[in-house]
């Protein structure tokens, strides 16, 4: 799916597309399968997934904005170094902020906050989008991709917490006798759940494509 790299004359429709692309059509986890490390590691409960999703969303929007703002000044040779510097700055800020808000969340996310810096979605968007588009559109792209990532983490976290602990955000759903499937809280459960979601997406896309082919054939 080609991006509209380029001509800085954004219409509202184009802006909308920049936002919606990341949400669904180009969803960073389910379609591009990027940033799987935090996706697998931090989704063993809904609250962890939400915290990680919000942290990444914040970094993505801020770094997209700043990268886009300096895009015309940065020489080609040092662009990656500059982007990483910018991303690392916002990751450090997020790190401090989470620690200030809740030590419990900070402990649960552990080293994965610092690892946001190597989440390929963020550098990917800086390089592929923010460095070629105006600030407004880049922020929208960051929002779309960030929320797309958030949705993915939330879907994984929900499945894993509901099956693995029988709770949602800590509230018990099935009564005291429910047998939790502990596996889904453990690392292998992350892989299984991601695989199931990818399978659902693949099946959905497959079906859509087949229907398109059918309508085209009928039209012809």
């Amino acid at each position: 799916m080609p991006h509209d790299h380029g001509q800085p004359a954004p219409s509202p429709a184009e802006n909308m597309e920049a936002f919606l692309d990341g949400l669904w059509k180009q969803n960073p986890v389910f379609v591009q399968v990027l940033g799987t490390c935090p996706t697998l590691a931090i989704t063993n409960s809904v609250s962890n997934a939400v915290a990680m999703g919000l942290a990444t969303l914040f970094v993505l929007v801020c770094s997209n904005a700043l990268v886009s703002a300096v895009r015309k000044l940065v020489p080609k040779q040092v662009r990656i170094a500059t982007y990483i510097l910018i991303i690392a700055t916002f990751v450090t800020i997020v790190d401090y902020l989470i620690k200030a808000i809740s030590v419990a969340v900070y402990k649960a996310l552990g080293p994965f906050i610092a690892l946001i810096v190597v989440n390929c979605i963020i550098l990917g968007r800086a390089e592929a989008y923010a460095s070629k588009n105006p600030v407004g559109k880049s922020i929208l792209d960051g929002l779309g991709m960030g929320i797309g990532f958030f949705i993915a983490l939330f879907s994984l976290g929900s499945v894993r917490e509901i099956l693995g602990a029988g709770t949602f955000l800590g509230f018990p759903l099935f009564g005291p006798n429910y047998q939790p499937w502990v596996l889904f809280l453990l690392p292998p459960g992350g892989f299984f759940t991601l695989a199931i979601w990818l399978m659902v997406f693949a099946a959905w896309k497959d079906r859509k494509k087949r229907r398109e082919v059918k309508t085209m054939a009928e039209a012809a």
Binding site: Q179, W181, V182, L183
Partner: peptide, 10 residues
Amino acid sequence: AFLQASFPVA
């Protein structure tokens, strides 16, 4: 292995 990881008590 799946059962052991899922239902370690049972």
